[in-house]
Design a protein around this nucleic acid. Sequence first.
DNA 1: TCTGGAAATGTTATAATATTACAAATTTTC
DNA 2: GAAAATTTGTAATATTATAACATTTCCAGA
Lengths: 163, 163
Amino acid sequence: MASQALPYRPHNHQACVTQALADARAICRAQNARLTPTRERVLELIWQSHKPLGAYDVLAELTAEGQNAAPPTVYRALDFLQQHGLVHRIASLNAFIGCAHAGENHTGMFLICRSCGNVLELTAPGVSGAIEDAAKAESFKAEDVTLEIAGLCPRCQSETGHD
Amino acid sequence: MASQALPYRPHNHQACVTQALADARAICRAQNARLTPTRERVLELIWQSHKPLGAYDVLAELTAEGQNAAPPTVYRALDFLQQHGLVHRIASLNAFIGCAHAGENHTGMFLICRSCGNVLELTAPGVSGAIEDAAKAESFKAEDVTLEIAGLCPRCQSETGHD
DNA sequence: TCTGGAAATGTTATAATATTACAAATTTTC
DNA sequence: GAAAATTTGTAATATTATAACATTTCCAGA
């Protein structure tokens, strides 16, 4: 009965993409950063689904589209997008996903379904606070938090349950 | 004035290693798992310091010692050690570190100093609890948590401060 | 509208990390 | 002691990421 987060239920995904691209353009304009065609296309590809995409998956798409792309093409675009908070790298998967909270200055927490591959990005103040407290208790100056939870999303739990 | 955690201050590190190996032997005996010479040597190498070691660093050591080792040799040993909770993989570094809480059934949280490279493994019940709550709020079944905090350890903070 | 510098992209090569697949040896069990 | 299971050896290759340097494009100021 609980309302499920977007990635885990059917939705008009094109709306996600359109919104993400609009946000990205606004953010880049505000930061005087250049969202070039390749960068924008990479962002769009990454938003094709709520599953993280590997750098070489992106590369394959660009190549298939006839773009003259090499690994640095993709990694440079991804670096740019990460620096401007438009995508996140999922360290445990070596893959990239669109940022669901672009421009919000957040610490992302990722729920990664090992069955369907979808990833939900959360902002959990309670978690961030607890992490800060724990770091502070060790006099550690936290700068960058990697928090990735692998498991089963609601949909995949119920499927194994009664399918 | 706060007491600093072990990795961040000078200590008789050989004691860490000796203890870790003794624990590992006991754990493997209890679980009826075979801590073969290569596995034990890999564990010992990883415990050489509180800095994570890459798989190919381990491989280079084994080779230097005259062992006939190839990548699978190392990855297999690491897999075994991980499965028995004796080492952790740090996803954000592609490297491995000895588990400071072997046998304790914990969720590790790692404080990674970007200056000196040392890593402190913590068990923070407050953090684990907050993560569980956040996952539960999304009806997500958490199975494996990756939590890695990059930043500056107490020692390296004070060095940049007045050195 | 030139033009000089900065930013972005192209291109080739290679580094770093990790796995597959199959053969041989070793250990355990019966 | 032989069959089965586990561990190790070995070669090849897959996957992810970066280095280095040339070229092009963009933009600000003269």
